[in-house]
Design a protein around this nucleic acid. Structure first.
Lengths: 164, 164
DNA sequence: GAGAAATAATCTGCTGGCCAACAATCTTGC
DNA sequence: GCAAGATTGTTGGCCAGCAGATTATTTCTC
C-alpha cells in the first residue's frame, strides 16, 4: 500500500523510534475524524466517571432530576427520548432514584400505561448540589479547550445531532 | 431549582407542547458539551456500524491492517497503544484477522512474550478496498459538517487527545 | 361498541469496551 | 546470578447500548 516496509521489529527496550511507530496515533487522529471523535469521547467519559465516582448520582440520574425539575413530571418514555437514554436503561435509572427517595412513580392520570415520574421534596437539595458540581465536571473533561473552543465544539455537535 | 413547575402532565395525544418539553434535548445539548459529545458519538458510531455491516472488516481490524501496512510488523501491545484499543479487545481483533488469513502471529525475535503480528500477501487487496471506502464512510458519519467544520472538529479532538 | 393496531414499561439476550487477574517472559537491583 | 518487579498476551466479569418479546393499556377502524 505504502512504501516497501522494513520487516524489522522494535526491540523491547525503550529506544524512541524514529519511524513514527510510537507517534502513530497522532497521525491517525489527524487523518480520521471518526477515530479522533470516538477516542476523545472515551477520554471525556472516563473523566466524567472519575469525577462522579464519589457522588450519589450517576450522570443519567442527574439529567433525569434536572429535566423533571425543568419541565415537571414526565413519563419514562419522555425522559428516554429527550435525554437520549435507552428505555431499558431508564428503568434501572429511575429504580435507583426511587430507592433513594428522590422521585416517585405515580400513575399518569390520563394514560395508565405510563408513569408520571415525579420529584419528591428531598430531590431539590440533591439536584442543587449536583448542578453546582457541573462547572468543575466540565473543566475536568474539557480542560484542554478554551471557552470559545467549547462553544465551537457544542455548535459542531449540535449540527451532528441535528438540533439548532 | 427553576421556576415553580406546573404539576401538569402532557396528554398522551400528539399535541405539540409549548413548554419545550418536546425540544428539551436541543436545550440540553446546547448547555452541556459533555452530553452533546457523547450523544453525537453514539450517532456517529451507529452510522459507522451500519456502513461496515456488509463488509468483511470491523473498524478495529481495518485500523490494525492500516497500521501494519504503514509501520511494519507490530506487537499486539504496540497496536493497542497506538490505536487506543484495549489489549483484551485486540486479542479477538487479531484472532479474526488471522482466521481470515490476513495476518500471522509470528514470534517476536527478541521478546518471546510478544507476537510480531505480520501482514500476509492476501491483506493488500482487502486493505486497499477498505481504504477506498473511507471517504464514503466519513461522508455518512459527518454529512452534517462541511469540510472546514470537519477540520475544526479534528483540531479540537486533537487537543482533547493531547496530540499536536 | 368490538376487534385491530399502536404504545408504555419491563425483561431478556446480545454485543463491545473496560478492568482485574493470571501465566509466561523479560528487566532490574543487589 | 538471582530474586523482585514489570510487561505481554489471554481470560473472565461487569456495565452501557441496543433489539426483540411480553403485558397492560390506549387509540383507531369499522
Amino acid at each position: 500500500m505504502a512504501a516497501p516496509q522494513p520487516a524489522r521489529l522494535t526491540s523491547p527496550s525503550r529506544e524512541p523510534e524514529a519511524g513514527g511507530r510510537d507517534r502513530y496515533f497522532a497521525k491517525l487522529a489527524q487523518e480520521r475524524p471518526d477515530v479522533a471523535l470516538c477516542r476523545a469521547t472515551t477520554l471525556v467519559t472516563r473523566a466524567l466517571d472519575e469525577e462522579l465516582a464519589g457522588r450519589r448520582l450517576t450522570m443519567a440520574q442527574q439529567l433525569v432530576l434536572k429535566m423533571l425539575s425543568d419541565v415537571g413530571p414526565c413519563s419514562q418514555q419522555e425522559l428516554s427520548e429527550q435525554l437520549r437514554i435507552d428505555r431499558s436503561v431508564m428503568v434501572g435509572c429511575i429504580d435507583g432514584l426511587e430507592d433513594s427517595g428522590l422521585v416517585r412513580r405515580e400513575r399518569h392520570p390520563r394514560d395508565r400505561r405510563a408513569y408520571a415520574v415525579t420529584l419528591t421534596p428531598d430531590a431539590a437539595p440533591v439536584l442543587e448540589e449536583a448542578e453546582a458540581g457541573v462547572p468543575h465536571l466540565l473543566d475536568r473533561a474539557f480542560g484542554a479547550l478554551t471557552a470559545a473552543e467549547r462553544r465551537t465544539l457544542t455548535r459542531l455537535m449540535g449540527k451532528i445531532l441535528d438540533v439548532g
